[in-house]
Deep mutational scan, measured.
Amino acid sequence: DHDVVPEDKFQETLHLKEKEGCPQAFHALLSWLLTQDSTAILDFWRVLFKDYNLERYGRLQPILDSFPKDVDLSQPRKGRKPPAVPKALVPPPRLPTKRKASEEARAAAPAALTPRGTASPGSQLKAKPPKKPESSAEQQRLPLGNGIQTMSASVQRAVAMSSGDVPGARGAVEGILIQQVFESGGSKKCIQVGGEFYTPSKFEDSGSGKNKARSSSGPKPLVRAKGAQGAAPGGGEARLGQQGSVPAPLALPSDPQLHQKNEDECAVCRDGGELICCDGCPRAFHLACLSPPLREIPSGTWRCSSCLQATVQEVQPRAEEPRPQEPPVETPLPPGLRSAGEEVRGPPGEPLAGMDTTLVYKHLPAPPSAAPLPGLDSSALHPLLCVGPEGQQNLAPGARCGVCGDGTDVLRCTHCAAAFHWRCHFPAGTSRPGTGLRCRSCSGDVTPAPVEGVLAPSPARLAPGPAKDDTASHEPALHRDDLESLLSEHTFDGILQWAIQSMARPAAPFPS
């Protein structure tokens, strides 16, 4: 592969990997390779389809078979030569091979799209000592099968071997295949498990690692696999990028399955594409389908809103127990993405979901129960707010008499603000006073009005108090039968009158 990737590009890729991570280095090298001529790309395919690569990765054979028959990708048995050289000459001794072996032994695996480039050397060096003999053996194999790289107009793939297949390693990572398949204008990513390549439709969760975000852009890794992070704060999961590491605690105790298979379609829109997988259930989501939507993949363990709600429900009964003089119970939860139609709101002032922060849900004790107040519409209280300059209440639009249902020339009671006709409430011909108009209920007259088809109010509507207090003497005590009587009149003013009279009014101040 030294004929494909020059030394300066190799060093530039290593520097970019240390600065921005393996995914960015892979993407940059792939983009550079696509700008080369067809001879360089053909050399790339020839390096990929060597015999030892085909033996190690069985899924490469179907890719090789898909090439046109007129494309010669065979390799000479006596060494490598550029395709432009007409004579089959043995190339001179390859010093770059020693360079590659020494550099890969030092860096474990470079971040390139060629056999030198995919593992994360920093994480491997940190986690190597417990498994040094086995990992050293794996390093000797890295130059042979560490990076199976493929690129063409139909298929483009980048393979990364790992030393996680050490025997006896619980939940060992089998390997990473960062794979971009450009077929019919689409893009897919796969993962390699035990020599087999699994596409998103049959993606397997190998051991402790999972394909957290099938994305090839942005600074985030394709698999949430930063070796420096180790395990999740809650004892979460091992990262795919942690090559040759000792077994780590796999999943939280509440995880239903340690080796679950995540779905390959969004649980909201039932469509495929780039998904984020939940650590607590097999569901996966688009970032845009979450509520609120996320802009980037959160670091650490992530769970959907259903799993978060289940966790909150487990903690909430203990938080609601009476604990005198104790601060509110704080339950730190990872930043969760909410699927459509589901929402768990945190306290005000918290950062938005999706940031690399930890939301704190506070379970406050329930407030003391209070008697429910009568629910009145805002339009129902409008007549009470229509007060004239002299303190006389004006008529609201649409006000109707509670007896006849007519809204023409209605009066407004100064005591309960109900609309009424003087002739309907006082049919006996009582003279109307000039000021202080009161309806039949507030004036103490319980004589029913002779209106055909309208039920008369119940005599129990009024329960006047002592006459010594004029204001308190007109406080009506309405009961269920009074409400039914008012409802039978089918008037809004009657219902409003009952609601206003049912509310307690402050006692009249004593004259000074």
Rank of each mutant, 00 (worst) to 15 (best):
L373A: 09
L258P: 13
H490C: 01
G375I: 05
S305N: 14
V454A: 10
P511Q: 07
R440K: 06
A417C: 07
G273F: 04
V268G: 11
L252N: 09
N262K: 10
A248D: 06
T414D: 09
C281V: 12
D470V: 09
W498F: 02
A366M: 13
D279L: 08
L462A: 14
Q260R: 10
A456P: 10
A499N: 02
R440C: 09
T447Q: 03
A449E: 13
W422R: 08
S378D: 06
P476K: 05
D409V: 01
V246K: 05
W498D: 03
P247G: 12
P327F: 13
Q393A: 00
V315Q: 06
I276S: 14
S305W: 08
A284N: 08
R345T: 10
D356T: 13
P383H: 01
D377W: 03
P324K: 06
A251Y: 14
Q316H: 09
F420E: 00
P293K: 09
S458P: 11
A267I: 11
G272Q: 02
D279I: 06
G398M: 07
C424V: 02
P324W: 12
P324Q: 11
G273D: 09
P466R: 07
K261M: 09
E326N: 09
A370C: 09
R412P: 06
G273H: 11
C386N: 03
V451R: 08
A477I: 00
G336I: 12
A396Y: 08
P249Q: 09
Q313L: 13
S502N: 02
D470S: 08
C416Q: 04
C278V: 08
F426G: 08
T414F: 06
R295G: 06
I297V: 06
C416P: 03
E342L: 15
Q313W: 15
S441H: 05
D279H: 10
P335S: 13
R270K: 12
E350A: 14
G402F: 03
A467L: 08
G402A: 12
T311W: 11
P247E: 12
C401H: 02
V454L: 10
K261C: 10
C404G: 02
L252I: 10
T471I: 15
G388M: 09
G434I: 07
P367G: 12
L250M: 14
Q316G: 12
P397R: 07
L359M: 06
R480I: 14
A508M: 05
T408M: 13
G429Q: 10
T471S: 14
G349R: 10
N394T: 11
G429S: 10
R438F: 11
D445T: 06
E475L: 04
L290D: 12
P335I: 13
R480Y: 13
P247F: 15
P464L: 14
P397W: 14
A417I: 13
F426H: 10
A310Y: 11
G336C: 13
H286K: 12
G453T: 02
